[in-house]
């Protein structure tokens, strides 16, 4: 993923409980509103953040959500990064398959989040998982 110019210092939320996922979601929504993303884009981004934040909590044992407004060639968007120090995802490709879950979810969080945003990047290993997303406004 390209390193985009950030418009403001990143805001962070530490996620250790499901109410923290709600807080992270609110942070992302506020940033998206401030950057002038349309309601549909806001909703898609916030929903993706909800999925990735909860994965981080459920499978990664909690982590940190970092978000910042970004800009590139005149367009404005929101960058969000989810980092945990959990066991990692053994097979990322498999995890990104619609309907695949190691627990009792719908198996749509990861693949669905990827479809909801414009850029999606995942790094995972035994030391943890980092997912980065960007949603651009139109």
């Amino acid at each position: 993923m390209k390193q985009y110019a950030t418009g403001a210092p990143a805001e962070t939320v530490a996620v250790t409980s499901s109410s923290d996922v709600v807080t992270a979601r609110q942070m992302v929504r506020t940033l998206a509103q401030r950057s002038g993303l349309s309601l549909v884009h806001q909703t898609k981004l916030v929903t993706a953040a909800s999925e990735l934040g909860r994965n981080m909590l459920v499978y990664g044992g909690g982590g940190v959500v970092r978000a910042a407004p970004v800009s590139d060639e005149g367009r404005r968007g929101i960058f969000v990064e989810f980092t945990d120090e959990g066991p990692g995802i053994p097979d990322v490709e498999l995890a990104l398959t619609d309907g695949w879950t190691s627990g009792n979810g719908m198996g749509l969080g990861l693949s669905g989040a990827k479809r909801l945003v414009d850029e999606f990047e995942i790094e995972s290993g035994p030391g943890g998982t980092t997912v980065r997303i960007v949603k651009w406004g139109r």
Partner: peptide
Amino acid sequence: RPQIAQTIVALGI
């Protein structure tokens, strides 16, 4: 709502 409908579809639900 429309934005929710679009998001649900994109998620694959």
